[in-house]
């Protein structure tokens, strides 16, 4: 009979009326955030960073600004620079994560937070001090070592710079990050 399908439609909406809503009321409830989630912030480990600016070179938008000077600890080897500026212009960032992909020393991570709304555009630039002071809840995006640790940003504790290296991961052995890390460790122990 004509109209039967329309009655069926009414039935569908009625069953949905009985169902629990699938939306969540955001500030109070949150959906589960997955560990690879690329947040609107960055986690940066100064101890691991050599100031090579690979991230700045690989950024498709060129929004990372790095200014360095030779470090006193190992000026000749050139494997560690003193960072004066490390600005990330969040207002233009598209959170593609290529800077994280490019970092050979696992110093830069995508963050897991996303509530970065600001009233002024200039506040959206993450300065080096903010990067230093921020809670270290890195996203596991492009960091398989964090995934194999079963690390979950937000629920697990914040990670220190020693815990986040890619030990055993393919690029790590080839590059010289390990060597430099050994040096830092010795320094800390002394």
């Amino acid at each position: 009979m004509y109209g039967l399908e329309m009655a069926k439609g009414l039935l569908v909406t009625l069953t949905n009326l009985m169902r629990k809503p699938f939306t969540v009321a955001y500030p109070e409830q949150r959906v589960r955030q997955h560990p690879r989630f690329r947040g609107e912030e960055f986690t940066w480990y100064e101890e691991r960073c050599t100031g090579c600016a690979s991230c700045a070179k690989y950024c498709p938008l060129g929004i990372i600004k790095i200014v360095t000077s030779p470090s006193e600890t190992a000026p000749l080897q050139g494997d560690k620079y003193l960072l004066e500026t490390f600005d990330i212009e969040l207002q233009r960032c598209m959170f593609c994560g290529l800077c994280v992909e490019a970092c050979p020393y696992d110093a830069l991570f995508m963050g897991s937070g996303f509530e970065e709304g600001q009233y002024r555009r200039t506040d959206l630039v993450i300065s080096i001090d903010r990067l230093r002071q921020a809670d270290k809840n890195p996203s596991t995006w492009f960091r398989p070592q964090l995934e194999s640790m079963d690390y979950r940003p937000g629920t697990s504790r914040p990670l220190g710079w020693r815990d986040v290296g890619r030990e055993g991961w393919r690029w790590h052995q080839r590059e010289k990050a390990g060597m430099r890390l050994q040096g830092r460790n010795a320094e800390d122990d002394a």
Binding site: V31, R36, R38
Partner: peptide, 15 residues
């Protein structure tokens, strides 16, 4: 989109 977030950390602009 949730599955995509699980895969690559983003929902729309996946890369």
């Amino acid at each position: 989109l949730d599955l995509f977030e699980m895969l690559c950390g983003a929902r729309i602009t996946v890369s």
